[in-house]
């Protein structure tokens, strides 16, 4: 395969694409290559301008109406066409559930390497991408290098800060003709559930609850403590995914949101490695759990062994006293 040049960025979410462009700029400059972006569907022309404001030198658009809905097979066709025109060395894709489907499918199509959920990006002496990602359920970090081109890597939202947009920047926009094949699959319905619109990644204080709570209503206790500390509510996977007591934007952990607030309080959460992998970079960690042997206590600065139903009200009261 030809060597490839520069960095191509794609996310179906503009916001994430802007974040990727910031890191993409650094990598592209380091290899003296162009920073490129792709945008698909009806909004692609409009998005192209925005992507250039956030740093893209060149934007490849595919306006095919089949791309108005995200269907991974169709998006793979489109991105494959863009790559054969743009010939990037590195392809960065936003790690949403959709992006996490697109990146490996694309890589398999191109018979090239793919790394998902990368937390660190570097270049080796030969200019190949070297990434870090969490492995072994959160117990370890693996350092992996790419041996093939293009080098496809996905990035979790909020890993990088977008650059300041500059409206005077104009990137070159290139319309690409892509052969979007028919696929034996149709999206029948897409429903957005109720959400609190919290952005845990931005929160300075997070108070999380787990299965130690007996019923949904009892999360009022978490709410009370969160309000005393100007914090947001978080939770473990079972609370959001199984019990659905809180929407998924509250879900902290390996398969949920990775957060690093100044203060994280875990209430009635056992502290399995997958939960810890999402919050262990917090500045101060406090836990309340009735089981003195709960693994969460290995991960805390301060711990209180006891019943959340008694301790949370007391702590909230104590804080209100000032």
């Amino acid at each position: 395969m030809a060597d490839g040049e520069g960095v191509l960025v794609f996310s179906e979410s503009n916001e994430i694409a802007f974040e990727l462009l910031a890191k993409g700029r650094e990598l592209a400059d380091a290899v003296n290559g162009p920073l490129m972006a792709a945008s698909f569907g009806a909004a692609s022309a409009e998005n192209a301008a925005k992507l250039s404001h956030y740093g893209a030198d060149k934007i490849f658009t595919v306006a095919d109406s089949k791309l108005d809905t995200f269907i991974v097979e169709n998006y793979t066709d489109a991105l494959e066409a863009v790559i054969s025109t743009a010939n990037p060395k590195i392809v960065m894709i936003g790690q949403t559930k959709q992006g996490g489907e697109l990146a490996p499918r694309l890589a398999a199509r191109l018979k090239t390497g793919c790394a998902v959920g990368c937390t660190k990006f570097e270049l080796t002496g030969e200019g190949n991408l070297q990434i870090e990602r969490i492995v072994m359920g959160g117990n370890a970090t693996a350092v992996e290098v790419f041996n093939t081109v293009p080098q496809v890597a996905t990035v979790l939202p909020k890993t990088f800060e977008p650059m300041q947009p500059d409206e005077s920047r104009t990137g070159e926009s290139v319309a690409v003709d892509a052969d979007i094949k028919d696929v034996a699959k149709a999206v029948l319905k897409s429903e957005t559930g109720e959400c609190a619109n919290v952005r845990l990644e931005d929160a300075a204080v997070i108070i999380s609850g787990g299965r130690g709570f007996k019923k949904k209503e009892d999360f009022e206790l978490i709410k009370g403590l969160a309000s005393a500390l100007n914090g947001e509510m978080g939770c473990s996977r079972p609370i959001a995914a199984d019990l659905k007591w809180l929407s998924e934007d509250h879900w902290v952990g390996l398969s949920g949101h990775k957060v690093k607030p100044k203060l994280y309080i875990a209430c009635g959460i056992s502290g399995q490695i997958q939960h810890l992998a999402g919050m262990r970079d917090s500045n101060i960690i406090i836990a309340i759990n009735k089981d003195p042997d709960a693994p969460i206590f290995n991960a805390v600065d301060y711990g209180l062994v006891g019943d959340i139903y008694q301790i949370i009200p007391k702590l909230t009261e104590e804080l209100k006293k000032g």
Binding site: A107, A140, V143, N147, P292, F297, V300, D301, Y302, G303
Partner: peptide
């Protein structure tokens, strides 16, 4: 192989681990 793992680093946590139990909880 499209990718090579060059290193695997264990994640360890340095924490104060000040845990209050029983009569110390208050």
């Amino acid at each position: 192989h499209k990718m090579t793992t060059v290193d695997v680093k264990g994640v360890t946590m340095e924490r104060k681990r000040q845990v209050y139990q029983d009569d110390d909880v208050d």
